Computed example of a mutant assay.
Amino acid sequence: MPEPDTTARNRYFLMTGSRLVGVAGAMLGLVLIGRAVATEQKVIGVALVLAAMIFIAVVPSALARRWRTPPEL
């Protein structure tokens, strides 16, 4: 019996995992903002949240674009 192609499944899990990593980073940034005493700590938390939001928006779509099946001619 031939082995099933697991490439599509693995790519889906990688895109979903990248989204989860971004969400975890955003949550860490929110915790830093909430527990911050100094202004510098709040700035680091805000920067982490913004970077995580950009990561969530850009990385999965870039991976999908990279792995897109080329059009048949």
Rank of each mutant, 00 (worst) to 15 (best):
P2D: 11
F13S: 10
R19H: 10
R9M: 01
L20N: 04
P60R: 05
P70A: 04
G34W: 09
P60E: 01
A52K: 04
R68M: 13
M27W: 12
R66E: 05
G34R: 02
W67E: 09
Q41K: 07
A38T: 15
T16E: 10
V21A: 09
P71Y: 00
V43G: 01
R68G: 08
I54R: 04
E40M: 09
A52H: 02
L63I: 15
L28Y: 11
M1F: 11
T6W: 07
A38I: 15
A47K: 15
K42C: 11
A26F: 01
V46L: 11
M15L: 02
G45M: 11
P4A: 01
A52T: 05
P4D: 00
V58K: 11
P2I: 05
G25N: 09
P2R: 14
P2L: 07
S18C: 15
L30E: 13
V59H: 06
L32D: 08
R9Y: 07
T69Y: 03
I33F: 11
I56K: 05
L73A: 06
I44T: 12
T6A: 02
T6C: 03
T39N: 14
R68Q: 13
T69E: 04
M53Q: 05
E40R: 07
K42L: 11
P60D: 12
F55G: 04
I54K: 10
P60F: 12
I44K: 06
L48E: 15
A51E: 08
G22P: 04
R11D: 03
P70H: 02
V43I: 06
G34F: 05
V21Y: 12
L50N: 11
V23A: 15
W67H: 15
E3P: 03
A51R: 03
T16S: 14
V46K: 02
N10T: 08
A52D: 08
V21W: 12
L50C: 08
E72R: 14
L32F: 06
D5C: 04
P2H: 05
E40V: 04
T69P: 00
V59P: 07
I33V: 12
Y12C: 01
V58P: 12
T16W: 13
T69S: 11
N10P: 02
P71L: 03
P70Y: 01
V58I: 13
L63N: 14
P4S: 00
I44W: 07
A38D: 11
V58D: 09
G25L: 08
S18G: 04
V59Y: 02
A8I: 05
S61I: 11
T39W: 12
V31C: 08
P71G: 00
A38P: 04
E3A: 11
A36K: 06
L20A: 10
L14K: 03
T6Q: 01
Q41P: 04
R11L: 14
G25P: 03
D5W: 14
M53Y: 04
S18R: 13
T16R: 13
L63T: 01
V37L: 09
L73M: 00
G22T: 01
T6L: 10
V43S: 06
T39F: 06
V49Y: 03
T16Y: 10
L63M: 14
L30R: 01
G45C: 03
L63E: 09
E72W: 08
V37H: 10
F55M: 06
V23H: 10
T6I: 05
I54E: 08
